[in-house]
Design a protein around this nucleic acid. Structure first.
Lengths: 347, 347
DNA sequence: TTGTACGCGTTATCAG
DNA sequence: CTGATAACGCGTACAA
């Protein structure tokens, strides 16, 4: 025989408000408000104690929505990801979440589900919840996202993918450095003919950067040959052909550099289907560390990204801005780590 | 030389409110509000047109926060996941998101990051944003989650993991059916000695259900032997030992049934380390389909869960409740699909 | 130090 | 059919 809750299932238990606390404590709403916002000073110990007791008794929590409405600020950070299915994004999200939590912010996530045209909607929606700033891991779809953010005048930080000339902080892997490291490692191992396999480059800056770095490496080292292949979801056959051509040209001196995790999967399947052995028959390095990398053949050599750090940094960066540090846009690049396994050893 | 936006970086562009629209349209706020909520009737064409024009001109959007404050309902659905890192949870999330979007709801996600004790906090936080209901994919940490939800009187639906005696809708894989299917398949293929490997069962209902079903299968079929092994993060050695013991007893008639994706990874590594071949040397079926399943040895046989459907159903279920359907708690079980690959063929 | 009154953006109610 | 007004829960000048 419970007292507070009416019998029916969804009986609304009448949110406890600041007025309730005030009544129970025998003070005014303003006093209760002060207890939260200026707690240190301004309160007679006696009154403070009464308020505190009432709060505890009623299990009162201020409504963030009402606060946001009044303050115009919400301690909410909007994060929009191109695709939650992507482990990279999720890892970054976790890092960001941690940093935000530590600073008393909450992350509100919007997933584009790989539909670039929803970016504007995402930003608008998050903004309607008064988020204080944005962490963006998206394509810049026709500059609409950037325009929307700038219109709102809220700070944003870009992760992994730069947007045209958007003046915002940018946090990412040092793609050029990572590519150089990978190419050098393959060259050292004796691989001479390289195929860089990437998803369609479109406007994704990280893909552009990686490909540009790859081209630059080739131009710098005349002993290397190379080509680029754009892999699509349904292009399994084409990928196998490309690998066969590569092998035809260069035999066991051929190696693949994969631009991200989904491409790595496609390459692994293609190589398996062709009956080739990673390492001796064909070298391989792939962007993004994978939990199953040790399982394929002699193990897949990967470039691990510091995803957690990237997320944390993005969040910290944004939060600094929120607290009003007016420094010019920063660009923070973190180094990748080469995790060497059998696929980059020729013997 | 832009006109609207002041020079400074974070200049607040003063949210456009319903009052602005009213002023521009030359009507009262109430009229504008009516335009949104009762659009069909009640508006003189002339006035309606003026309001519409003003809305378009100012790009006005109602503030969901103010609406939630006033209405007590937010068209927000709170989803709490034990661990976003888990691809299963993410897949379910996506399904739920789609269904919610179709119904005009937005999903607000809270990630526990594998800290069960944060469940209460998660629910309280989401509730403070006036979410209309919950989708829970969590452990029931000391019944606190259940208690909190019931106190709030908001509907909830449980996904994959049942909470004690919480009276809520439950959406999940038909675990018993899936286990039976897997065991039957292994038995048909000639495997006789089965090792069920699971993460520590704790209070996770899906793990309990799977293990119980496994035990039941063994009791039903006297020609089968079986054992259960609890695998932990740092117990790689122990797992290898268990597999060796199994092999010692039964040779090539030994098979593993893995309870989820993370265990599958551990098993694959252990088997590789032991130099065994999946299929001929040791049978294998694992819960959860993995994109890399085709890559390991002759391919790993898996039980694919209809994650998208699970998410969608959970959301639809919840939304039905929100629209006030007072049916008793439902329990919806979906069948898994056995994806047969080489690891469950003895030759 | 504490209380009163008003505004944040929206909607419901009640007159007109 | 339209407009004024109160109220949602909270923060804060301002007055006491």
């Amino acid at each position: 025989m419970r007292s507070e809750s009416p019998p029916g299932a969804g009986a609304a238990p009448a949110r406890v408000t600041i007025a309730d606390v005030a009544r129970v404590a025998g003070v005014s709403k303003a006093t209760v408000s002060r207890f939260f916002n200026h707690r240190e000073a301004l309160l007679t110990p006696d009154i403070a104690a009464r308020v505190e007791a009432a709060i505890a008794a009623l299990d009162y929590r201020p409504s963030p929505m009402a606060q946001a409405l009044k303050r115009g600020t919400s301690r909410l950070i909007g994060m929009v990801v191109a695709d939650v299915t992507n482990p990279y994004s999720v890892a970054v999200l976790r890092g960001a979440e941690k940093a935000c939590k530590d600073a008393g912010y909450l992350v509100m996530l919007f997933n584009l589900g790989n539909e670039p045209e929803r970016e504007r909607e995402a930003i608008a929606t998050l903004s309607s919840y008064q988020v204080d700033g944005f962490i963006l891991n998206t394509f810049d779809h026709g500059g609409k996202g950037r325009a929307e953010v700038e219109r709102l005048g809220k700070p944003a930080v870009l992760v992994d993918r730069r947007h045209g000339r958007m003046s915002a902080d940018f946090v990412s892997l040092d793609n050029a450095g990572a590519v150089e490291m990978a190419v050098a490692h393959l060259a050292d191992a004796g691989y001479r003919d390289l195929l860089y396999v990437t998803e369609p480059v479109k406007n994704v800056s990280s893909r552009l950067d990686r490909q540009a770095a790859f081209d630059a490496c080739l131009q710098r080292d005349a002993s290397l040959r190379g080509a680029v292949f754009e892999s699509t979801d349904d292009g399994a056959g084409a990928l196998e052909q490309a690998i066969e051509m590569l092998r035809g040209r260069s035999g066991s001196k051929a190696a693949i550099l994969s631009g991200n995790a989904v491409v790595t999967l496609r390459c692994a399947i293609a190589v398996m289907r062709l009956g080739l052995r990673f390492g001796p028959d064909i070298g391989f390095i792939g962007f993004d560390e994978l939990d199953w990398a040790p399982l394929v053949g002699p193990g897949l050599t990967t470039i691990a990204q510091p995803t957690d750090a990237l997320g944390r940094l993005a969040a910290r960066c944004l939060i600094e801005r929120l607290q009003g540090s007016p420094s010019p846009p920063r660009q923070i690049l973190l180094s990748g780590e080469l995790i060497v396994r059998g696929s980059s050893r020729r013997n």
